[in-house]
Design a protein around this nucleic acid. Structure first.
Lengths: 338, 338
DNA sequence: CTGAAAGCGCTTACAG
DNA sequence: CTGAAAGCGCTTACAG
């Protein structure tokens, strides 16, 4: 602990006394209402800085019903896609003098709903949530506090939520289309098996591409969308002797895990199997075989989500917006031989 | 926005009315003081859940001077070392029903001090700060709010702060020692040039190893500790024809950037140059040439920092603790030929 | 075991 | 332009 003196911090009252005015007046200059003379303003500001006064946020919020805290629920902060997105939210929030409380669900749907409840208990009612795969339906059942405002980062959400996301169906289409362009016909989509709107949209897009071009996509289930699960999935595919020549990882972590396992098993990439990820993490380009991936405007998604959240609060009519941004395929050696 | 009804949420008063008791009694059961009969408790709890009452945090904090928000200042959330550490803090905080506000300084010392001030303005007085390289001295000058409690994640901090960190001097020593064991004698330490306690400790450790074993370490300056800066630094080293056979990256990102540049310039690793990073990020093992690195118990550091912060608050005597954890070298192909 | 009342530090009509 | 007073939703002595 540091520098804890036991004197109470000065309040409006102390400032008022020091400046020789009433607390009303101090409050007025604090809030720049203009209801004070120039001279008064100066004296008050002097008192404020000389006493080191800082306004008590609790009292302020209690009185005005204002909110300064925004809750951000992410599935897994150690996935740098979410970390970057969080950065976008945090930076934009800082500009508006808002605080962002970050909550991590460790990729567990149940945990995410608990986190949601506990934020609710702590009266954090401005929420940006990136649903854990599988939490979508839980979210549907989750009844937010009546005064809650929320923006989901997801596709196809319940009608009474705002949302922002890249068009995952298009992303899935791009990825599959690219594999097909490289001559692949037997594709595997590796993702947790949930009714997640994000995942099913990607799969739908991929299926569509497959249909158009006479290829096949099979959904291969994993437990969590991380590196370990990718490793395990690839091992199983190889051990079971499944026939496939293209793989769509639900995200880059899964794809990276699969690349690791393929190397172990001497499965050549992209010759025997071409691999596409999703998110285009920075690390995707520093792999032994650089990873083809679908890029999302990560920071921008975060910024937009925050702007929507704050915007909505002030709008009279509650019209629920759904922003869809465009994904972009970045081709690298995991699909295109050098 | 979602489901915003315009009725005010129920307060203690509404619950009291519904249960047919006083607000005092409701408050008592809310806080489990035991000053109520069993029957009363049941009735109150019924009313609470049927009305969907949730306690107003602002009023609670105002009245009790309690604090539920903890501020976490990180240099760069997109560096997964910091993201993981943040996770440790967040998870431990959740167990204690505390919220963590995360602030990102984009590796900018000035920005970090601004963030510090703005948290102060928002009355966030429980702080865990991971100083940006170069912010150490700024932190010294920063005068926290009198009621502020802070734990720094850093070595050798001002005496009136608590701190936790791995022993960076030992980490630097381990890294240099390892390079020397591989027969390297002309080492380059690549890091921002600041009076940062973390960096100078690592350099000191490395210098010590060099001295013991008749090798040399030179400090090579970069602007920020990220991949791009690593790339630039390596290019310059090569272009300038500097003679060196071992490199110590201040963190894995820098080392990864250097590996990228060495590949471009056909500098062979580890033959011509052996490379060591710091942090042991997950991605360090998936590189074309897996990276030798100094591992830190990242999650544990975060957990410990939080425990210290909360512990200190309740302790009567303000004894400032400094926890030092042990780093560990993980050898891979960037230093040891296969 | 229960409740009336004061007060935490602010803001905001309202009166002057 | 300025201030006295009420009140935001809680907790906590205090009295019963």
């Amino acid at each position: 602990m540091t520098r804890t003196t036991d004197t109470d911090p000065p309040g409006l009252r102390e400032v008022a006394a020091a400046a020789g005015v009433s607390v009303t007046t101090v409050s007025n200059v604090l809030n720049s209402t203009g209801r004070y003379s120039e001279r008064t303003r100066e004296r008050v500001e002097e008192a404020i800085s000389s006493l080191g006064f800082v306004r008590n946020r609790s009292a302020f919020e209690l009185r005005t019903k204002a909110r300064t805290i925004i809750g951000l629920l992410v599935p897994d902060l150690s996935n740098s896609f979410f970390a970057r997105l969080a950065r976008g939210v945090i930076q934009s929030a800082a500009e508006k003098n808002r605080l962002v409380v970050v909550s991590d669900s460790a990729n567990d749907a149940q945990r995410q709903v608990e986190n949601l409840d506990s934020l609710s208990e702590l009266q954090v009612n401005d929420l940006i949530v990136l649903p854990v795969d599988g939490a979508d339906d839980l979210l549907e059942r989750w009844r937010p506090h009546p005064l809650t405002a929320a923006v989901l980062v997801a596709n196809s959400v319940p009608a009474d939520f705002c949302s922002v996301a890249v068009d995952d169906e298009q992303g899935g289409y791009l990825a599959a289309r690219h594999l097909i362009d490289q001559g692949r016909r037997r594709l595997v989509f590796v993702a947790p098996r949930t009714r997640s709107s994000v995942l099913s949209a990607r799969f739908r897009g991929a299926s569509q591409a497959a249909e158009h071009f006479d290829a096949a996509v099979e959904w291969r289930e994993i437990a969590r969308p991380d590196v370990q699960a990718g490793v395990a999935a690839a091992r199983r595919l190889v051990d079971e002797g499944v026939e496939f020549d293209g793989v769509l990882g639900v995200n880059d972590l899964v794809a990276i895990g699969m690349l690791r396992a393929f190397r172990e098993h001497s499965v050549t990439v992209p010759d025997q199997v071409a691999v596409v990820g999703y998110d285009d993490l920075e690390r995707a380009q520093d792999l032994p075989i650089p990873l083809t991936s679908v890029r999302q405007p990560t920071l921008e998604i975060g910024r937009l989500a925050l702007r929507m959240l704050l915007g909505e609060r002030t709008e009279a009519k509650h019209e629920h917006r759904h922003h869809r941004l465009a994904p972009e395929l970045v081709a690298r050696a995991s699909t295109v031989a050098a």
